[in-house]
């Protein structure tokens, strides 16, 4: 089991091409922790903005009558991948991990696999 800071640091170092990572509470839109980012990637803005993305998808699924839950969301940009992975179980509802990747350096399948492992080991 790893704490928030360790998990985010691992996402930054173990996942090839990581630009920034955040753990976000999507009931409030606030980040519980951030690693990386910078002038070109404000992770607090990303936390608030992607909260709207997650909420919109949850609402859409409700409207579609899908009785399922989101495992992850992938957003592909020209030069980046953005991965959103919702935390599940252990009373961690309402949180997601956000990871921004450099598209030229990242291996998407590997990044997704590693983020799943980091999420499973994360303890709040």
């Amino acid at each position: 089991m790893a704490n928030v800071e360790t998990s985010l640091k691992e996402a930054m170092t173990a996942i090839e091409g990581s630009l920034g990572a955040a753990l976000v509470d999507y009931t409030s839109g606030m980040a519980l922790g951030t690693v990386g980012g910078g002038k070109d990637l404000d992770l607090n803005v990303a936390a608030a903005g992607n909260t709207d993305v997650v909420r919109a998808k949850v609402r859409t699924m409700e409207m579609l009558g899908l009785k399922d839950e989101i495992e992850d969301i992938l957003i592909t940009l020209g030069g980046q991948y953005h991965l959103i992975r919702l935390l599940r179980g252990r009373g961690n509802n309402g949180l997601f991990l956000y990871l921004a990747l450099d598209k030229t350096r990242a291996n998407l399948a590997m990044a997704r696999h590693q983020l799943r492992r980091i999420e499973a080991e994360l303890e709040i």
């Binding site: 976000v24 009931t27 409030s28 839109g29 606030m30 980040a31 607090n44 608030a48 909260t51």
Partner: peptide, 9 residues
């Protein structure tokens, strides 16, 4: 249910 992060920004 407001997004507080967004409100702050």
């Amino acid at each position: 249910r407001a997004n507080v992060g967004r409100i702050h920004l």
